[in-house]
Design a protein around this nucleic acid. Structure first.
Length: 724
DNA sequence: ATAGGGTTAG
């Protein structure tokens, strides 16, 4: 390509206007060569113009080229140093800005000025540690620039980025002059973590007669999104209308409003704003709509919008994936993630969190492991405690508590959050490792990590799964007395479970009576479970009746009640309950089990033989029966209440979904592999005995996750020690 | 030549 302005390079003429009019790096390179040809490369002013162009071009090549030119200058002036620092502050390697700054000081020719520090602080704000930022702050004071408004505003930004809002506020409050930018920066800093403080500061800003602009409103809507308070959101929206003459209502602002309404679940309002911009391809606004609809349960509308998007970025894909994940459609979430990978879109931390959460809920260990190894272990992600928590949660919920613990122990003490502790404690609880769970709980307390409702749910669960009655009672009492956390329904549920399993049914019932709220189905189900274990039919019937009142549409409750009656030989009553169920057209919820093989999830429904490998599975199933018979096993059909003969009952039990999944696992997994099964209901008593026997017969380790906990079957026994 | 913005999350 010929550059049009060649004739400008006459003797004594300056190439400056040309550099300014360059539209591309390529053109600028041509100008550069012309400068050299004309001997102007010793001309410091031309060179500094050229360096600026390349350094601020926004491209990596441009920046590298400017560095090359920079290194050829003997004694760069402050403007050139500043320009280089500014270039790196926006690049992929902001730490390079600090390196340059240090060498500038080391050379001792130039000292930093009021322009240097905002660029440097911008670089610091993009590093992974606040430490360099602190050092630069010291330099600012040493050089006497602490009252410069631009520098103060950059400092507020720096501290907010690292979540140190109190420090940001100290800088804000210590400024003699505060302008619109000071307020906007501070309000944006507050928006995500302290939304109420953001609104307060906005009020203060109005009192000080500082007119808000579109940036202010974007931050305010972001705060309202966090608050999910539609009242306040609407108020701010009205205020925006009043100020509209002075405010540029751009697409970013509209996106923030859409996001606010979507987060508040007001999809009609969101739709109104969205209709004005739906033809533009604002991916943020579309993504907010997608997530908004998904969260309202309108997953099909969400998917429809997602499909119609002109362009999808990571955020859009993540919105749809977490939409599936948050509405319980975990397989769909993973499927969409694979599609995203196929399209060559790189997931980010947030995508990983959504995908790992779906893996955890499904018990998809292989899938979760792949994500961990492929993206996170050799990955480019920052050390992010939310992501680490998601990984630990995935391993724990998928039955690999050892892997979870190993990662947990590798985390620095000061990075351990409540979420992290709660997650590992509930993982330990699910595995029946009550003592260890309590140890972690104590560690959490002594480390000064804040306890919350979730911490107590986790630790009380751990007590109940391990039969630690006295510890559980003490912890429950200390909850409010020591930690000031008022027990909620979930905590009472744990206690009912804890007392009930221990056979203290009267105590459990008393606790339900004394609770400050009406018991929900979870509580009655816990009591009923305990009644079944301890054979207390009378209280069991009370619990069942209550269950039918609270949730009359839930088939499982009818089954539980009729089981209970049948077990105490009240066959007529049992039949009556069955009849009631039929009359109300209530279906028994289907039992299913998952097993993962090579990253694919295979689902088995009870008595369903439609799997592609049905023949092999059936053969293995027969073989299992023969083996069981040879060790003298007799089916326990206590939990089958159908009015059928004994032999048939045995057949029904033997086709439970977990058995089919196990047969599939024995056919397909290599002998050293652990067979991992996830069930949507509690494992039945007979299957539990059978799995113990088969773990010995086939010398296999089998892990079953049911709705309550994990069962590790090995050499003829189960980790739950039959306490479940 | 300098400062501030929206979307995803356990």
């Amino acid at each position: 390509m010929k550059f049009p302005g060649k004739r400008l390079f006459l003797e004594n003429s300056s190439p400056l206007p040309l550099i300014e009019s360059c539209k591309s790096i390529k053109q600028a390179l041509q100008v550069h060569s012309q400068i050299i040809v004309n001997g102007l490369h010793r001309h410091i002013f031309s060179m500094s113009r050229l360096i600026s162009f390349f350094a601020l071009s926004g491209s990596k090549d441009g920046l590298n080229h400017s560095r090359l030119l920079f290194s050829q200058i003997d004694c760069p002036n402050l403007f050139i140093w500043n320009t280089m620092i500014r270039g790196y502050s926006r690049s992929d390697s902001p730490q390079e800005a600090l390196v340059l700054y240090m060498s500038m000081i080391a050379e001792g020719v130039e000292s930093p000025n009021n322009f240097t520090f905002p660029f440097l602080l911008n670089s610091c704000a993009r590093l992974s540690s606040l430490e360099p930022g602190h050092e630069i702050h010291c330099h600012i004071i040493k050089n006497g620039y602490q009252s410069d408004l631009f520098i103060r505003n950059s400092l507020i930004h720096l501290y907010s980025v690292f979540g140190d809002l109190s420090h940001a506020r100290v800088v804000f409050d210590g400024s003699f002059v505060r302008d619109l930018v000071s307020y906007n920066t501070m309000i944006s800093g507050y928006a995500q973590d302290l939304p109420r403080a953001a609104l307060c500061l906005f009020r203060e800003m109005l009192d000080m007669d500082i007119q808000p602009d579109e940036f202010t409103f974007v931050a305010l809507f972001s705060a309202c999104s966090v608050l999910t308070d539609p009242q306040i959101g609407k108020q701010i929206h009205n205020l925006l209308y009043k100020n509209l003459s002075s405010i540029d209502s751009n697409i970013l602002l509209k996106s923030a409003i859409i996001d606010m309404y979507a987060k508040c679940g007001l999809m009609k309002m969101a739709e109104q704003v969205f209709s004005a911009i739906r033809n533009s391809k604002s991916t943020a606004a579309w993504s907010s709509m997608v997530l908004g609809y998904a969260r309202c349960g309108e997953i099909e509308i969400a998917r429809h919008l997602f499909n119609k998007m002109a362009e999808r970025d990571v955020v859009s894909w993540t919105a749809m994936i977490s939409g599936y994940s948050q509405t319980g459609q975990y397989s769909e979430a993973l499927e969409l993630f694979v599609e995203m990978e196929d399209q060559g879109i790189k997931p980010d931390e947030v995508t990983m969190v959504a995908v790992l959460s779906a893996c955890a809920r499904l018990g998809a260990l292989e899938f979760g492991k792949r994500i961990h190894h492929q993206y996170i272990e050799n990955g480019s992600f920052d050390q992010n405690i939310i992501l680490t928590t998601a990984i630990i949660n995935m391993y724990a919920k998928c039955g690999s508590i050892d892997a979870a613990l190993k990662i947990f122990h590798g985390i620095q003490e000061n990075r351990k959050t409540s979420f992290l502790f709660n997650s590992i404690i509930s993982g330990l609880a699910q595995h029946g490792l009550g003592e260890t769970a309590i140890r972690f709980f104590r560690e959490m307390v002594s480390a000064g990590v804040k306890l919350d409702e979730g911490s107590f749910v986790a630790v009380l669960c751990a007590c109940s799964h391990s039969g630690l009655v006295e510890e559980g009672k003490k912890l429950f009492e200390s909850m409010f007395d020591v930690y000031g956390i008022r027990p909620q329904m979930e905590h009472y549920g744990c206690m009912v479970d804890l007392l009930g399993r221990d056979g203290r049914l009267e105590d459990a019932y008393d606790l339900i009576q004394k609770m400050p709220f009406e018991a929900n189905s979870v509580i009655w189900r816990a009591l009923l479970g305990a009644c079944r274990i301890h054979g207390n039919v009378k209280m069991g019937e009370i619990a069942s009746q209550k269950l039918l009142e609270v949730e009359p549409d839930h088939g499982a409750h009818y089954v539980l009640l009729s089981n209970m009656l049948a077990n105490s030989d009240q066959w007529d009553e049992a039949k009556r309950v069955r009849k009631l169920m039929e009359d109300r057209h209530i279906q028994k919820p289907p039992g299913w089990s998952y097993i993962e093989l090579n990253g694919t999830i295979h689902q088995f429904l009870a008595s369903n033989k439609s799997h592609p490998q049905a023949k092999e599975i059936e053969l293995m199933h027969k073989e299992m029966a023969v083996q069981l018979k040879s060790v003298g096993y007799v089916p326990n059909t206590a939990q089958v209440v159908f009015d059928i003969d004994e032999e048939e009952k045995g057949t029904v039990v033997s086709y439970h979904s977990e058995r089919l999944a196990l047969a599939f696992g024995l056919v397909n997994c290599s002998p050293k592999d652990v067979i991992r099964i996830v069930k949507n209901l509690r494992i039945c008593g007979d299957c539990h005995s059978v799995f113990k026997l088969l773990s010995e017969i086939y010398e296999r380790e089998i892990v079953v996750r049911d709705t309550i906990r994990f069962h590790h079957f090995k050499t003829g026994s189960c980790s739950c020690l039959d306490f479940w």
